[in-house]
Design a protein around this nucleic acid. Structure first.
Lengths: 120, 120
DNA sequence: CCAACATATGAATAAATGTTCATATGTTGG
DNA sequence: CCAACATATGAACATTTATTCATATGTTGG
């Protein structure tokens, strides 16, 4: 019966060993999905720019809009995404809402990304 | 003249200071773009799964396709993207092409991502 | 309470992206 | 060289996504 399905590159033994390892080390489907969703959030230069501003200070929405030369609406939509991913947190002070970084992983991830693209 | 353009949230002084800081610490436009492009690559669960396999071993395309239950074409397309970002490298051995991780940043970035989504 | 301001959000549009299918390229044994 | 295998790639389609515009929600001073 269908040996073909599991035969590949003429390396049946290595193949089966690989399948076993992958089976045990691969995270759950939901975690993989969540991971991809998280990195998608980093995958937009507007959001990256927002994060770089927040690296320096706690900032309100309209200051962000002005610093990045974008509309308040566009910034607000992106802040929503950043907040949903728990990369930023917000605090209301009167009419304004101030945003800041939610945790340290953001800096590490961005820093590692920069290192990667800068080598070679 | 247009004070309105630079006035915002009634915090003119803080605002100007922010603009100056942002101006000096914000990376170049091209670096921001490259950073976003890099993280986009991590923003797809198929590519994340490929990376998790490569965490364990150097693997050929057809084994990847089989381990992940996907077509050879789909895997090949994604490997191309991973390679363009220099996250993986390839080595031909006869008819097969073996892929492996290109550098250590990949592990760190994924690890930080996992930590982030797992806290709380 | 109301006007003015700050932020959030829904709908619409344009652009980017992942997979499939078909096919091309590249390699090896005979 | 040719057939069989492994991988790469182009075009097409469906889905996702960022921004804009209009408008809603929320807050404060008077």
């Amino acid at each position: 019966m269908s040996e073909k399905e599991f035969d590949c590159c003429e390396t049946v033994e290595i193949h089966e060993e690989l399948l076993k390892i992958v089976e045990t080390t691969m995270p759950e489907e939901t975690e993989l999905y969540d991971l991809a969703e998280l990195f998608k959030v980093f995958g937009d230069s507007t959001r990256i720019r927002i994060l770089f501003v927040l690296f320096e200070a706690e900032v309100c929405v309209c200051d962000l809009a002005e610093a990045l030369h974008m509309t308040q609406s566009a910034i607000s939509h992106q802040l929503r995404i950043l907040k949903q991913s728990k990369l930023v947190k917000s605090r209301r002070e009167g009419k304004s809402v101030f945003y800041s970084l939610a945790d340290a992983h953001v800096r590490t991830i961005i820093a590692q990304g920069r290192e990667h693209i800068e080598e070679d």
